[in-house]
């Protein structure tokens, strides 16, 4: 099976978070807890449900990723963009003087 990780948005500020191997919700995918079989995936799913009930996060999803040479690569572009942020140069440049 494809391996799975758990992701969500933090309730308070909407920040993208992943569920870490240390049991904390982290802002990067590094150190994320990886489910490699169905049991582990089910366990992650219940972690997600509990986190919703505890009002820590919203929009929890178990997503498919691939291990590409030690790097976790989500299969859907949507999830890759959630990791990278917008793929465009979106923050305003400082005013150029004419």
């Amino acid at each position: 099976m494809t391996i799975k990780v758990l992701t969500a948005n933090r309730l308070r500020d909407g920040e993208v978070v992943w569920y870490g191997a240390d049991g904390e919700w982290r802002e990067t995918i590094e150190g994320v807890l990886v489910a490699r079989d169905a049991d582990a995936a089910a366990a992650l799913e219940s972690v997600g449900k509990a986190a919703i009930r505890a009002n820590l996060v919203v929009d929890v999803n178990l997503i498919d990723v691939e291990d590409r040479g030690g790097e976790l690569y989500p299969l859907r572009l949507r999830e890759r963009i959630r990791i990278s942020g917008p793929t465009i140069d979106y923050e305003p440049r400082k005013t150029a003087s004419a």
Binding site: G14, V58, I81
Partner: peptide
């Protein structure tokens, strides 16, 4: 309630 006040949840944030 949040939708009635224009608050959505998008990919990266509210």
């Amino acid at each position: 309630l949040r939708l009635m006040n224009g608050v959505y949840l998008q990919l990266h944030a509210y």
